[in-house]
Every structure is written in C-alpha cells, then in structure tokens.
C-alpha cells in the first residue's frame, strides 16, 4: 500500500493539515524505534517527510487543560487511563470503565465525553479539559465548582468531577437551563449516594454563578 510510507507524525498540527494524509501509527517494529525516531523531529509540520514503513508513534503530545503534554500512550490506551496514570490528573475518576457511570467525564473540544471510552490517540490535536483545568491559576474555583461548595452538592463525591464536567459542557450549549433541562444534561452520570436532588440544586447554583460571572 503506497500510502503507508507517508506518515504524519507531527501532533499539534492544525487538523486540516494533519488530516491530508492520515494513516497514523502502527506499532510493529517496537516502541524504542518509534519513540527515538520521534524525538529527533521538531514539532513543526513535517508533511511529506518519509519515515520507515510500519513505524508508528506512541509518544504524542496532548493538549490538556491548555498545556501541551508529552505522553507515551499505548494504542489501546483510553484517555481516562492516560490522564490518571500517565499525566497524574487523578481528578478524572474511573468508575465502571464501560461508558455508563460518567465519573470519567471530560470535555474534548468543549463536548462531554466518557474518557474511559475514548482512545488517547484519537484526541491528538483536540483540546482536553479535565476537572483540574477548571479553576483559575490563582486558585479561584470555576463558578460551577463554587456552586457545588455553596450548596454542599455531593456526599462521597467520587462522581463529582464527572458531574461538574458534564455540567460545564452542557452549560456551553444551554447556559440558562431549567432544573429539568439540567437534569437531562447531566443524566449520563450516576451517583450511588443518590443525592441527585442536592446535586442538581448545587449545579443549578453553579449555572447561576456562571451566568453572573459571565455578565460581570
């Protein structure tokens, strides 16, 4: 297959460019080779540059919480695993690991996803936002986080990061939801303390905080 000799191995390249010829990564000949070959390349666009057949990249750059993070990710690795166990972002929780409980919810390009069911390699060039990326650098909490504090939204709070990320994502599409609408928006998240009523109250408060902070 002729195309296979032409790899795009430069992450951080604008989507339109990087997708021009886009058969990415195959690990066949070993990680060491692929990582080494990567390290000698700059992160500038390298379209058309030839590399060895069948050599894929595991060392990739992810945009997480506004930072470029280098990470060695296996092809079968999920984003939740990478975030927690490679990047130390343990605010993203792994509950069911089957796209059911929502505790691993993160935003990818502002849309909520179950990070347990997204392959890390598929988010190259996209913006990942986790619970750690919500607060300001000065420590000021995100208005939704503040709403959770204000209303003491959660009990054990294992599900909290997921609920907050789902809410932040939902509010981008509907900033002024009714209680019913917000419940629909966060319905992909489970709480086993089942404190849904108080959670919803706190997230409604968060939505209100957010609207207020956007005005001011």
């Amino acid at each position: 297959m002729a195309d296979k000799t032409d790899f795009n191995t430069s992450e951080g390249v604008p989507k339109a460019v990087s997708r021009r010829n886009f058969i990415k990564g195959v690990i066949t000949s070993g990680v060491a080779v692929s990582s080494a070959s990567y390290l000698f390349r700059a992160s500038t666009p390298l379209n058309g540059q030839q590399s060895a057949v069948g050599v894929g990249e595991r060392l990739i750059t992810l945009n997480v919480n506004g930072q470029q993070r280098r990470v060695d990710a296996m092809k079968q690795e999920t984003l939740a695993s990478t975030l927690r166990y490679k990047l130390g972002l343990t605010g993203t929780k792994l509950g069911c690991d089957r796209a059911e409980c929502g505790s691993c919810t993160v935003l990818i390009d502002d849309i909520p996803y179950y990070a347990c069911s997204v392959l890390t390699h598929t988010v190259r060039g996209r913006k990942v936002l986790t619970i750690e990326g919500l607060a300001n650098r000065d420590g000021t909490l995100h208005p939704v986080q503040q709403g959770v504090i204000d209303e003491q939204g959660f009990q054990c709070a294992f599900c909290m990061p997921g609920f907050i990320m789902a809410t932040v994502g939902f509010l981008k599409t509907k900033p002024n939801p009714t209680r019913q609408e917000l419940a629909q928006g966060i319905s992909g998240n489970l709480c086993r303390c089942q404190d849904y009523d108080k959670i919803l109250t706190s997230l409604m408060r968060g939505a209100e905080n957010l609207r207020r902070s956007n005005r001011g």
Binding site: R19, R20, N21, F22, I23, K24, G25, V26, I27, T28, G56, M74, K75, Q76, E77, T78, S81, L94, C96, D97, R98, L119, H121, T122
Partner: peptide
Amino acid sequence: VIRDVMAAFELYQPS
C-alpha cells in the same frame, strides 16, 4: 468486570 487496559492492538486512523 475487568477494569485494566485493553489487550494490545494496532490502531489505524485513515483519513
């Protein structure tokens, strides 16, 4: 329910 990393596979992302 198993909760560790999936078994290895090669990943192709054609355009």
